[in-house]
Structure formats: C-alpha cells, structure tokens
C-alpha cells in the first residue's frame, strides 16, 4: 500500500507567502527610504578618508610618516584647488623666541594687515574668517568694551580715535592649551601656539577659554578662490583647514620659521608692527621693550603673559 503524495497545504502556504510578501516589501521599502534619508551624507564623502582618519598625532609622527602625510596633503590640495602647493613641516629654531610689538601711536586703522593675513594664511572668504580684529577706541581710554570693529569711514585715521589690532597674543601660559581635551593645540619652544588641524575635534573649548577672542571656528567648509590660494604652506600653519576645526594666528609660521617677517608686518603702510627674536639683544623688539616709554600687554591681569606688546611713541 502506498501513501498518496501529501497534498500541498494550500492555506498555510498562501498565508506564509502573503506574510513574507508583506514583510519583504516592508523591509525593501524601509531600506530604500533609509538609504534616501541618508543621502545628504554623500556630500560629506570628501570630509575624511581612511588615510587621514588613521593619521597619528603630530608629535607621534616619524619623519617618514610626516613625508607621507605632507604628500597626502599636497595631493588633496591639488585635487581640490588645481594648484600644487609646497607643504613643509617647519620646526622651531634654537635660540629663537618670537615677540610681536605694535605701535599704537602709528596704527591708522587701515585694516591692510587683516586682509594680507587672510591672503597669506588661506582663510575662508565666505563665510569670512579673519585672525586680526582692528578695534577703534576713543582717545583717552582703553576700554575694550567700548571698542568698535565695524567702523567704515571714507578715510582713516579719524580724528579723536585710535586703533588697536588684536590677534592671537601667543601667551606664555595659554589658557586655550590648558582646556584642549585632546592636546590638539600646544605651545612650541619658539613661543608659537600651534594647532594640529587633523587632531582637533572641534569642541571649541579653546575658543571659550581665550580672553582675546583670537580663535576662529570653521562652521562650514572653508571657501578659498583658486587664484587667491597661497601655495607656500606649513603643516601647523596655513594649509587649508576643513570644516569643524579651529584655527588662529600662528605668527605666519610658514614665513617666520623660514626667517621672514609675518605678512601683516610687511603690508603695514606706517611701520606700526614690529617682530623679531626677543633672545637677540640687537633685534628691534628687544630695543623697543628696552627703550620705549610705555608698553602694555592686553588684559595683563589675566596672567596669560602675552608675547604681543602694545607700545606708544611719545
């Protein structure tokens, strides 16, 4: 006796197929929608790559690592801007400590330093990032709360006012370095406080800690026109930054560690800006601190001990 072939269980099979169909379509629809909703992330595709993601901390890079990193940066900049840059890793020199002096009697508030700095250091043009803020204050006071930075008269200097450019003061005891949770910013032995833009996590603690409003944050992707890109770059200096990292004045590291004056100094039409090695007694900054009548450190009472001095002529 042979058993009849088992009849296909039509009802259960039909129920299964409907359920699996529903499940399948729900899953398909869900995944499609998920993919669509994640599509804005595609814009971030060049935000980071594996090589950059796996890059070590600046202080842990061996010379060989650094060579590779500089080559990667050069490649990235060329791809993005069509200009082959020369990126260097310049180390502080022995027996050199930089100091900046600014003559408040001479400054006429023309803001040429602001724009020379932007041009030298490849800051974003839109939105604008500027390291130098020129404050206008009435004669006879030094009240920063009453300072105006958006002045735009036809001609400068205006009678009754003086001008005070403020930028990173390169403090001896920098509060911004103290608060950084990842040690992405530190003070080098020539006095310049630098930032490893590939190590910065963008928490902006340093911006809050700085009493001089000297640090700037890249809220959006920086926008630099190709024809204004400065190809002479340094790793800790003016190489193009990415969205979400801090930046600030670094005394034009790509120039000063190669022996040249900062860009803001060379453009100053009245010679109000003075820069040099304080450890050299014959430098102009040593002369100024020794001979000039008055000099102030901005917000001296904060105990930050800036390497940026303001002085007067008469």
């Amino acid at each position: 006796m042979s058993l009849p072939p088992p009849a296909p269980d039509k009802t259960s099979d039909a129920a299964m197929s409907r359920r699996s169909f529903l499940r399948g379509s729900a899953m398909f629809g869900g995944l499609t929608a998920l993919a669509a909703s994640l599509s804005p992330l595609r814009e971030l595709s060049d935000f980071t790559n594996t090589e950059q993601f796996l890059q070590k901390y600046y202080k842990e890079l061996t010379p060989d690592d650094m060579k590779q990193v500089l080559a990667r940066i050069e490649g990235e900049v060329e791809k993005q801007y069509g200009v082959r840059p020369h990126v260097r890793d310049l180390k502080p020199m022995d027996g050199v400590e930089f100091v900046y002096c600014l003559n408040l009697t001479r400054c006429i508030g023309c803001r040429k330093c602001v724009h020379a700095c932007v041009n030298e250091n490849n800051q974003s043009r839109n939105p604008e990032i500027q390291y130098i803020r020129v404050l206008r204050m009435p004669h006879g006071s030094l009240d920063i709360d009453k300072a105006e930075q958006n002045y735009h008269p036809k001609q400068v200097p205006e009678p009754g006012f003086f001008y005070m450019p403020v930028q990173c003061q390169q403090c001896h005891t920098p509060p911004c370095v103290k608060v950084c949770p990842v040690h992405a910013t530190w003070q080098e032995k020539d006095g310049i406080t630098v930032i490893d833009y590939d190590w910065c996590i963008g928490c902006r603690y340093c911006e809050a800690a700085c009493p001089y409003w000297a640090r700037r944050f890249n809220f959006t992707k920086p926008e630099i026109p190709k024809e204004r890109l400065n190809p002479n770059m340094a790793y800790l200096g003016n190489r193009p930054r990415k969205q979400g990292v801090m930046e600030k004045c670094h005394f034009c590291i790509q120039r000063t560690r190669a022996g040249r004056y900062p860009a803001c100094l060379e453009v100053c039409p009245v010679g109000a800006r003075k820069f040099g090695n304080i450890l050299d007694p014959d430098s102009e900054v040593s002369y100024i601190l020794r001979e000039k009548r008055v000099f102030i450190q901005l917000k001296e009472e904060m105990g930050t001990s800036p390497r940026f001095f303001y002085y007067f002529d008469k």
Partner: peptide
C-alpha cells in the same frame, strides 16, 4: 629708532645678522 629698526618699515628677514 629708525636705525634700531623700531621706526619705519622693514621687509625681508627678521634675522638681521644676515
């Protein structure tokens, strides 16, 4: 002041030994 470099404009290298 000008001779010491504190008055006027200078450009080039901050290292005046060169």
């Amino acid at each position: 002041d000008w001779e010491a470099g504190a008055h006027g404009r200078i450009s080039g290298s901050w290292d005046h030994t060169k």
